[in-house]
Write a protein that binds this DNA or RNA. Sequence first.
DNA 1: TTAGGGAATTAGAGCGCTCTAATTACTCTA
DNA 2: TAGAGTAATTAGAGCGCTCTAATTCCCTAA
Lengths: 337, 337
Amino acid sequence: MAQPTMQQVAERAGVSLALVSLVMRQAPNVSDYRRQLVLDAAEDLGYRPNVLARNLASRQTSTIGVVLNDIHNPFFAEIIDGIQAAFDEAGYRVLIGNGKRSPSGEAEMIETFLQFRVDGIISAGATMSMSSIEAASESTKMVVVGRSSRSQLIDSVNTDDVSGARMAVDHLIELGHHRIAHIDGGTGAGAEARRRGYSEAMTDHGLSAEIVTACGDFTESGGYLAASELLSQSSQPTAIFAANDLSAVGALHRLEDAGLTVPDDVSIVGYDNTALAAMQHLSLTTVNQPRDELGCLAVKFVLERLRDERTDPVHHMVAPTLVKRKTSSRLTTGAPT
Amino acid sequence: MAQPTMQQVAERAGVSLALVSLVMRQAPNVSDYRRQLVLDAAEDLGYRPNVLARNLASRQTSTIGVVLNDIHNPFFAEIIDGIQAAFDEAGYRVLIGNGKRSPSGEAEMIETFLQFRVDGIISAGATMSMSSIEAASESTKMVVVGRSSRSQLIDSVNTDDVSGARMAVDHLIELGHHRIAHIDGGTGAGAEARRRGYSEAMTDHGLSAEIVTACGDFTESGGYLAASELLSQSSQPTAIFAANDLSAVGALHRLEDAGLTVPDDVSIVGYDNTALAAMQHLSLTTVNQPRDELGCLAVKFVLERLRDERTDPVHHMVAPTLVKRKTSSRLTTGAPT
DNA sequence: TTAGGGAATTAGAGCGCTCTAATTACTCTA
DNA sequence: TAGAGTAATTAGAGCGCTCTAATTCCCTAA
């Protein structure tokens, strides 16, 4: 498993170690003749630069770590696309870490990335404490996506979840619903804001007495359980606003199991507008988060920091939009009580 | 962003650099007294080991890279779970790379991992050429999952896709179907074997004249398009066997768009048994690939190589099982022609 | 012919760590 | 109390690269 080194390439090409280094770094001021000599020697030997050594010496890795809160949630898989494309273009490579939906899992991944001395870290949907994230920012450029923040140290990009949630609720109210329940995201990123948007919208429409929140956790099974809870209550909702698509799907299943029809008996609105929601078979009404935009902005912020173009923190909010599909419809009389 | 080094910890603790190194590596034969001294100093300074330097010197990273063919395909996200759990236990950390469903994307990720000198790489659903993968195996321990291989250099773990495909077809034939079409996976991993299993099963039942294959690519949109193609043919199928769940879902949507009912008009069977297929709303009949087992075996093989317990290649095949759900049913007379 | 100047090349000192070998500090026995 | 044996500690070389400064080369202009 011994790998050829620059030294060996240099010897084979009959030049100095330093010249090989210059060629590998595509430095200017290297004659075409020797450049080719080095390239050929490297090719012959199957030389591959050792990033560890390179970065030990140069103090940078040209690598960005992205920590995903949950690799199973399509929302995060989708946000990766924009991030990856933008970094590819800028000449950085991206490594992905799975936070396993737990603060400790995220912390471990961040620690791993820090030990690898990545140039920057983007944390998507982090659930760990802001202070832990800030601690990491002492060692690298950190940007948080999909979570609100007012940190003085870290940039953040996220969707205006309060207004997103309001849109969802307003939509249901427009359709004539009053008994609108919310399945929340527990301690997940954005859960608090969506909960607040829900309450505010309900209150604004004089429906504060109808506010009912069931605990979820951004997973399908969490949504299923939460829907069970809602069904067991004396006054069943005619509409449900779930904190994300995954839990909306879980709730949908629970309602179907109970013999209820969506949207005829109960309307459901999700959040995220993942590919899941877009599936025609589901066709979930949901709130769109512009993932590409979120990803691109996050990258932009990291790059700005990397290039020392800015030191003050930026907190950007992008506007959500409502996507009306087939799981929400006008309240019909004779809905279950 | 300057990070404290071992040297600084040593000075603060009043001991030698070497001793700090021993403490960090949890070596025995260090007195409790000095160990504490070092630990305290490290804590005070916020010291974090530099993996780059550590591994440059020790020639190992305790890190495994996992290249996923497509981070959007739930199958791969699910296979990660088993892999991660097994490596956590063995004291390795795992980094994930997204192959972006292209051989070049996979190659780039493998190259990145190699440059980081990871101790091993697991490639899930690789579509790149076997020879490229073998080239990588000269520099690290490589194991391939979800793709058949007879390589003399690389271990592989995969499902017996030929028999998996046969199960799907046999099931449909048992239900009375004859005109069974296949939406294949193009050049994707396992696509060839599934295609072969389909053909063999059809031939065995004297249905070789009914063999119809539409080209897919393991994505939902690919399945949608392939189904369009099948619908436009003069003799429409009464059942479709899709090469994976994602394309089965795509086909399902196409059929629904055409006003057909599944399974009454057309039965559909997928492959993988992802969470998607299990969703009650879809309830897709599919062929289960034991992802946990695949992941654990892959890890086992990597670890064996890492511990030099074995040098001969191992090719393990696990048995698939049929999961009957609601998208397949007995052929009813009066099916579309 | 030669000084000057820019381009091309190289020497050599690190980067932060591990690891072998050597040294020093103890403990126990005779 | 010396000597042996073991435990604890340290010196120092080296991992594969980058980077600054120094050197060499080559071309032009006087």
